[in-house]
Amino acid sequence: MRETIEFRIAEERAQRFLEPGLGTLVNETLRKVVLPREDPRVQEIGAIERKLREQGSLFFTYWNIERRYSATELKSAELLNLIIRTSFEPTGAMCGTGYDESVACEYCGAGARQTTALILDTRRIAKSKDIAQTLAGEVVVSSRFVETFQKAGLRGAEFRPVMHGGGKELRASDWYQPVVTSKPLRLAAKMLAGNNPFDLDERGEHRCPKGHVAGLNQLSELYVERASHDGSDLFITDKLFGDRRGELRPEPRWLISPRLRDVLTAMNAKGHALEMAHVV
């Protein structure tokens, strides 16, 4: 696995702390730096970030960890993290989907119960995709995805029709909402979550005291407990990531079996990426 980490740093801070010529300009005030994870300059950036945070400032704003795998590595994975790359808005709640917020966690906002069919403006979903999610983390899949999933005899989800609510009346759409029926996969202790790659949120500001949210962001590959694996093909994690902020909600991570990976590959499904997940 090759892991790279991208930082976006205000140009004036980059000029002050980084070697000249490192990275590229995104615009006149923002520099993008991409480094292999093992590059010593990553730790230097971490040290600058920690120092500036102690002083009430910060070094980088944006960060992203990219993991690239060989075909052999992906082939050997027991489970895979299905990363949904296609996002859209408006969210379900903005289109009329009902939620019972009274059952949501008072600390992290997780667990609001969906009380109606998922209603979306389905014109906002890219037609070329097979999987996508709203900003609120409501996942939808194409009818092609559902047909292929069911034809292959895969297990772990039911699919409920998504209603199109972009006009005067609700009508059926070509999209479905997967409702996961498999047992949630328990995150293992090895899993890292936090605010950014150098801040594991030791103060617990973004960890739910009731245990619903593991942290603001997923930092490591997914690690899940073998004892919670029920042999299905589609899963979500037991704990969520993120926070309740405006339309954003804490979201689980999605995992798939190698069987479902093969099906997605064969149908040339669009809208996602895969990372290895570790069953421990």
């Binding site: 976006r8 910060l58 704003t61 944006y62 992203n64 900003l135 603001l216 954003l248």
Partner: peptide, 16 residues
């Protein structure tokens, strides 16, 4: 979107 990419499944902390 140059400062923080759209729809990446990650969120900036409040200070960021």
């Amino acid at each position: 979107r140059e400062e923080w990419q759209y729809g990446q499944g990650r969120r900036p902390d409040p200070q960021a």
